[in-house]
């Protein structure tokens, strides 16, 4: 038994060495592969959206995300090519690099070529990027308009938004059942006008909304209302704005820089206290200076008299 076990042992050791060698080689291969992969490309995805702003500017935005540390996160500086598809042909519009939020934005022309059902198609692609795998995404929307009717000086603060789309005969057709959201324009964004700010259009294509009584306006009491369709399956994002004077009037600060401890000019009590205290001392000083001067003059005067 004993010799056999030694043999066994030797055999086992041989096997082990072989195994280690194989594992070693394998790991080198894997490492090399991983290396090639890291020098190769990262998986990327594109999400697209379409905006029609209040000033009728149309933009398409592609959000590029890539797998960083196992999670998809927006990536910057990726070149995205935008194509316009028409009659099964793709025409390169422009390439844009993503910003640090991962967004690539292009401005679309107003007379986009439409297909038979009046839709347009924009495709965003990552192509032959040195860092990322190819990816693409497309949007397919038709054009809609929101028209706001409101009386800026009305006390009822009622806004009616009429949503229309372009019919095949060139006529504007009302859109039924489209959700319109009502916002108030603020300095850095748009704020929902109230808790339930989404209203669906009726068969006339109209959605009505009453703005709350207290919304801070500017110094003239005016603010801008915004009506939006968001991520609509047919129309994408469509937005309209209109000025009103329904807001509460912002009182202009009469004296934005009052006399205060933290302002350039000191409060009067402080000024007076310091002036009286040190003014008094300096008054005495000057009297003393005068006396010293007199000391100098004294012998001369006594000599005269």
């Amino acid at each position: 038994m004993k010799p056999k076990s030694t043999l066994d042992c030797r055999y086992f050791l041989k096997r082990l060495t072989l195994l280690i060698t194989i594992i070693g080689l394998f790991s080198v291969i894997v490492a090399a592969q991983d290396q090639s992969q890291s020098q190769g490309k990262t998986e990327a995805t594109i999400t697209m959206s379409y905006f029609k702003n209040a000033d009728m500017r149309r933009t398409a935005v592609a959000l590029v995300k890539a797998k960083v540390n196992g999670k998809f996160a927006p990536v910057k500086n990726v070149k995205v090519n935008f194509y316009l598809e028409n009659d099964k042909t793709q025409k390169l519009l422009e390439f844009v690099k993503t910003d640090n939020k991962g967004h690539a934005t292009i401005l679309l022309q107003n007379d986009l070529p439409l297909d038979d059902s009046l839709y347009f198609t924009i495709i965003a692609k990552i192509e032959a990027d040195p860092l990322y795998e190819d990816a693409q995404e497309q949007i397919h929307y038709t054009d809609a308009n929101i028209i706001l009717s409101l009386n800026p000086h009305d006390t009822t603060r009622l806004v009616t938004a009429k949503v229309t789309e372009l019919g095949k005969d060139g006529k504007e057709l009302p859109v039924n059942g489209a959700e319109v959201k009502f916002y108030v324009q603020r300095l850095f964004g748009i704020m929902p006008a109230s808790e339930d700010y989404a209203v669906s259009t009726d068969e006339k294509g109209e959605a009505s909304f009453t703005f709350p009584k207290i919304i801070p306006g500017d110094t003239a009491g005016s603010y801008t209302v915004v009506a939006r369709m968001e991520d609509n399956a047919q129309f994408g994002n469509v937005e309209t704005k209109a000025p009103t004077s329904w807001g509460t009037v912002l009182a202009v600060e009469k004296d934005p820089f009052p006399r205060a401890l933290w302002e350039p000019y000191a409060p009067l009590p402080l000024v007076m206290t310091i002036s009286i205290l040190f003014g008094g001392v300096w008054f005495v000083y000057f009297y003393l200076f005068f006396q010293i001067w007199k000391i100098k003059k004294d012998p001369i005067e006594t000599a005269k008299s």
């Binding site: 205290l277 006396q291 000391i295 006594t302």
Partner: peptide, 30 residues
């Protein structure tokens, strides 16, 4: 400063000294 030690000079000096002595204390505290 032309000190001759006359009576009026001594008088003036003493007066000035007294005032100075009094005024310097609050200034120092301040």
């Amino acid at each position: 400063i032309g000190w001759k030690g006359t009576k009026s000079q001594w008088h003036r000096l003493e007066k000035t000294m007294t005032i100075m002595t009094i005024i310097i204390i609050p200034v120092a505290v301040s």
